[in-house]
Write a protein that binds this DNA or RNA. Structure first.
Length: 717
DNA sequence: ATTAGGG
DNA sequence: CCCTAAT
């Protein structure tokens, strides 16, 4: 078992709510009811393109010496949801250590990948056709000149010097924005993740992603060196400091060239501070950013320290590459409890109190985090300072508010001249995904695995959603102007979100426990889905497993249903709901979604009652099941669920009569609402019609109980 | 254990 | 799906 012990890294953009109740509550609040706007691309498709370019190109990964035996061509294996595992893993761990570790790990680093900030400039078409942009042609990104620059550093960043040329997918990656144009290089674990675009500018930028110990670095390198001061704007010339996640402050040579209108990277783990125009910070936080930063993530430092301490301890003295593993273990272990327990709850609550919280954070940049733990870690606090109107055009220069580092991807209004709308997306958060890799795997393979995972995610069909004032703009045909995105005030409320490609996500059969964001380690085999990992038994997982292997039954109708479904059980959060979840996971940016995302760290806490209180996994009724249900109800009526169960679902052990009753309830509801409002696997209209008919019929029978028996008798006869 | 309904 | 009250 040891050999098969899984190492799982969870990068969360979103986590399931900690408790069933919370989950329901969240659902009630519509958190996961968001519907994917299938295939709807927004006017900012270019963002997606950009993101894709940044990390795409995984396919043609050059063989890297560092990469272990993972081979991309291999079909990704399904990896079960890790939540279960985590709990499992934690067992047997030293509670104390775990606790500490957990505390630290969570706070220490972001567990999500940030794709750096992007500065985007798009034309706000005035209803008419789009304008031509000389600089960009035949490029998806051609919607407008685009400049992306970000710089971030942190002590834990891992830099490797492999750079490679990148070709944008459809076109060459072309970032043009006044000062420079070119492409970006990406490095992941020191391995080139993707071919890089070439910058004509100078400067080396790094987009860093570091989920806990795992660090990914994406860097863009300019051909030119950093002293082209002529390119720098006044702002850029000013010394700036980057505060790494552990609060260490390091002066950063501002040689990185930034477009005059772009902002320095201000990723989640980096705060830009010490700027002359501090006063311009709209957030109202006047404290030195270092303080702010600190306050925002009070535990970061401690965590770091702790972790180091722990690392020094025997607990961590394992194999060279055990650190990550251990880290994970810890992660999987107590931490979950800790975070899920309290923080999760808090976050959950914060969702509700978002307005308040936001305001609070906004006004008390320095103290808020205490109450909310690793607020920053989640990096989704959208406490962006408001760009006050008092800013003059001259001050349109990039500004970073003390709290701006929290505003993950909220676009910032940068400049508006002519008909150009300029936006800055601070960062995109890559949705959560899990990696499963054997202990025996090499670090190289781990790197590769992670890289592939990221590549797959970003290159695998993410959509970019545009939200304005919290509302998703689905009409891609609208111009920015029409939408109002050209107005500064509106920009304030503009948000972007990365969403999984529905078509892709749903492409996998329901029977497949295929999770778009579960990336398996193909290379060194080892785990075959469920079975391979005995230790994975967790309440949730257990359920899933058992469901996955239904007892063989003779093939009668009931069986049909059962097998029909059981054999293809959806893993937790799969299927329809999964999409919703994923969507959420991908929505880092807009303030509104912030809460949802941060809402949950890892798993739940109470191990003891968790098993008992574990919410059953969701298993949407298949059409065939609905069919059977309808048929049974037509015959038996709506008040004899036990009979219905016996009649049509006797072998479907996971369907209780209550379930059937509930399903009928929802079916009736579904049948009454417009098809557009329906979600999940569409139920044939014919069935819905029958539902209504049967429901009406049996409702009537109830009203006239005296005739019920007669009618029934008649019917049966 | 079932049913019925609200959550 | 969960939770409960009422059968």
């Amino acid at each position: 078992m040891e050999l098969h012990k899984r190492i799982e890294y969870g990068f969360h953009g979103y986590q399931v709510p900690p408790t069933p109740r919370a989950a329901r509550s969240a659902r009630r609040r519509g958190i996961n009811t968001r519907k994917d706007n299938n295939g709807q691309f927004c006017a900012f498709d270019l963002l997606a393109t950009l993101a894709g370019k940044i990390l795409l190109e995984g396919e043609k990964l050059p063989s890297l010496p560092d990469m272990g035996g993972c081979h991309r061509e291999e079909e990704p294996e399904i990896v079960k949801d890790s939540f279960g595992e985590e709990e499992k893993e934690k067992q047997g761990q030293d509670d104390q250590n775990l606790t500490e570790v957990c505390n630290t790990s969570q706070n220490n680093c972001d567990r999500s990948f940030i794709v750096s900030e992007l500065v985007l400039q798009a034309p706000k078409l005035n209803g008419e056709g789009k304008k031509d942009f000389p600089q960009t042609q035949n490029d998806i990104t051609s919607s407008g000149p685009l400049s992306a620059i970000t710089t971030s550093t942190s002590d834990c960043s891992e830099k490797v010097g492999c750079a490679e040329r990148e070709h944008a997918v459809n076109t060459e990656c072309k970032f043009e924005s006044g000062t420079f144009s070119g492409s970006a290089d990406i490095e992941l674990f020191g391995c080139r993740v993707s071919p890089a675009c070439k910058f004509e500018g100078e400067s080396k930028r790094e987009i860093k992603v570091e989920p806990n110990d795992l660090k990914l670095a994406i860097s863009a390198m300019d051909d030119v060196k950093s002293d082209n001061s002529e390119h720098r704007t006044g702002w850029e010339r000013k010394p700036s400091y980057l505060i790494s996640s552990d609060n260490s402050v390091e002066a950063l040579p501002r040689d990185q060239i930034l477009p005059s209108n772009s902002l320095p990277c201000n990723g989640e783990n980096v705060n830009l501070v010490n700027r002359d125009d501090d006063e311009k910070f709209s957030s109202g936080c006047t404290k030195p950013s270092s303080t702010i930063n600190k306050s925002l993530r009070p535990s970061s430092r401690i965590s770091d320290r702790r972790i180091r301490k722990l690392l020094a301890s025997k607990y961590w003295k394992l194999t060279p590459n055990s650190r990550e593993e251990e880290h994970f273990k810890a992660d999987a272990g107590r931490k979950n409890v800790y975070y899920n327990g309290s923080n999760a709850f808090k976050r959950q609550r914060s969702q509700r109190d978002f307005p308040f919280k936001k305001r609070k954070l906004y006004h008390h940049c320095s103290s808020l985090s205490n109450s909310d733990g690793d607020f920053r870690t989640d990096g989704i606090y959208n406490s962006r300072g408001k760009v006050s109107n008092r800013d003059t055009p001259a001050s349109m220069l990039p500004r970073v508010s003390g709290a701006s580092n929290l505003e993950a991807s909220e676009p910032e209004f940068l400049q508006s001249k002519d008909s150009q709308v300029k936006l800055k997306i601070k960062s995109f958060r890559v949705p959560e995904f899990f990696i499963e890799i054997p202990e025996t795997a090499t670090v190289g393979s781990l790197k590769k695995t992670v890289m592939e995972a990221v590549t797959a995610i970003l290159g695998g069909g993410l959509h970019v959603g545009v939200l304005l004032q919290g509302k998703k703009i689905r009409d891609d045909s609208k111009t920015l102007f029409q939408t109002g995105i050209c107005h500064e005030n509106k920009l304030d409320a503009l948000g972007f979100s990365l969403e999984p490609n529905l078509s892709q996500a749903s492409s996998s059969l329901p029977s497949e426990d295929h999770h778009p964001f579960l990336i398996p380690c193909d290379g060194s085999k080892l785990l075959s889905r469920y079975p391979a990992v005995p230790s994975l038994t967790d309440t949730m997982e257990v359920q899933g497993i058992s469901d996955a292997f239904p007892d063989p039954r003779p093939g009668d109708f009931n069986n049909l249903i059962e097998s029909d479904h059981d054999s293809a059980p959806s893993p937790p959060e799969m299927s329809t709901e999964k999409n919703a979840v994923d969507t959420r996971a991908l929505v880092p940016i807009p303030a509104m979604n912030v809460e949802a995302l941060s809402a949950v760290p890892m798993r739940k806490s109470k191990r003891s009652d968790s098993a008992a209180a574990q919410r059953r996994i969701r298993r949407p009724f298949s059409v065939s099941e609905v069919e059977a249900l309808v048929q049974a109800v037509e015959k038996l009526g709506t008040g004899r669920w036990r009979d219905v169960k016996l009649r049509a679902f006797d072998n479907a052990k996971h369907r209780t009569y209550v379930d059937l009753k509930d399903k009928w309830k929802t079916l009736v509801h579904t049948a009454r609402i417009s098809p557009q409002q329906r979600r999940g696997e569409p139920v044939p209209q014919e069935l819905l019609d029958r539902v209504l008919t049967a429901h009406a019929y049996w409702s009537q029978q109830q009203v006239k109980p005296q005739f019920k028996q007669q009618s029934e008798v008649c019917r049966l006869l």
